[in-house]
């Protein structure tokens, strides 16, 4: 909406603010209410156990292992050790993730993002104002969003079709033809460890079903060719309504070279991604570029 206000030519500068105090409510009750009130809610579905269904479908369809998912957790808790804004930076091992308490099989405690309180804000401006008022603006070059079917049973949970559509829109607007080559750093919505692998596929940053071998290859590590979630992602801070915009903020820091110890050298194009609804029913993709 902020982007639309600027693009409409009616507003020069727009402030976009998000805040979330997850600690004040009961997340299971609230996320249960995203399901159909008549015949899904009574099953006790919430964000965690519905995601467990998705993780299982993904593992079965593509032979992804729990170890591969655990590697995402290890990476995304290690990356933010130099991110002062992250909620849960820590050193953990794949083994520790695998042996952590099972919340809803196959999801374990350390596969899961924390309950966080937080707020964030960004300032958007139209091009001329941005050039005049800011020495290092970051440009929003592409944006796309899309939503899949509502009932979990209506979707193939193992494939993020709506994400593929949202990404296509964003890439088209940004003029990106080969996302793997052109994108230097990505911040994706890893509410659970397996999600990062699935979303990378939906984003076209790795082939369908290849999320597991991608993490094994080290491609998404800080020293790999496409670092993913240098900020620690959602696994390290999950203030729900804030977490999507936090991905944009980290991308901006990366593109401005202000990410400190977690800086991805020479990052020129960044991708930020957010989800909505159960198991990523809806997706939103931003492509951002550096001032040249």
């Amino acid at each position: 909406m902020g982007v639309m206000r600027i693009l409409s030519g009616l507003h020069r500068i727009t402030l976009v603010v998000a805040q979330s105090k997850v600690s004040e409510g009961v997340p299971a009750v609230i996320t249960n209410a995203m399901f159909d009130p008549v015949y899904e809610r009574v099953l006790g579905l919430d964000a965690i156990n519905s995601s467990a269904l998705q993780m299982r479908s993904y593992m079965v369809k593509y032979g992804i292992t729990e170890e591969q998912c655990a590697k995402v957790s290890v990476k995304n808790h290690r990356n933010p050790k130099s991110n002062p804004y992250a909620h849960m930076p820590m050193d953990i091992t794949v083994d520790e993730v695998l042996r952590s308490r099972v919340l809803a099989d196959p999801i374990k405690l350390l596969d899961t993002s924390p309950v966080s309180d937080g707020a964030c804000a960004i300032v958007l401006a139209e091009e001329r104002t941005a050039r005049e008022r800011c020495s290092r603006p970051v440009w929003i070059t592409g944006v796309g969003h899309c939503a899949d079917a509502y009932h979990l049973g209506d979707r193939d949970l193992a494939d993020a079709d709506a994400l593929a559509s949202a990404a296509k829109r964003a890439y088209k607007m940004a003029g990106i033809q080969d996302p793997v080559k052109e994108i230097d750093v990505a911040e994706v919505y890893d509410a659970f460890s397996y999600m990062e692998l699935m979303w990378m596929e939906g984003l076209g940053l790795c082939a369908w079903g290849k999320g597991g071998s991608m993490i094994d290859s080290g491609m998404t590590e800080m020293d790999g060719p496409l670092p993913v979630n240098p900020s620690g992602g959602v696994l390290s801070a999950h203030a729900v309504q804030v977490a999507g915009m936090a991905r944009i903020i980290e991308s901006v820091l990366q593109l401005r070279g202000e990410a400190g110890m977690r800086q991805v050298e020479g990052a020129r194009v960044a991708l930020a991604h957010g989800i909505e609804g159960a198991c990523g029913q809806g997706h939103c993709v931003f492509v951002l570029g550096r001032q040249d």
């Binding site: 609230i30 996320t31 209410a33 995203m34 159909d36 009130p37 939503a147 509502y150 909505e276 609804g277 159960a278 029913q281 809806g282």
Partner: peptide, 8 residues
């Protein structure tokens, strides 16, 4: 009592 009304 519908959360995520856009999705629902």
């Amino acid at each position: 009592s519908i959360n995520y009304v856009d999705m629902w």
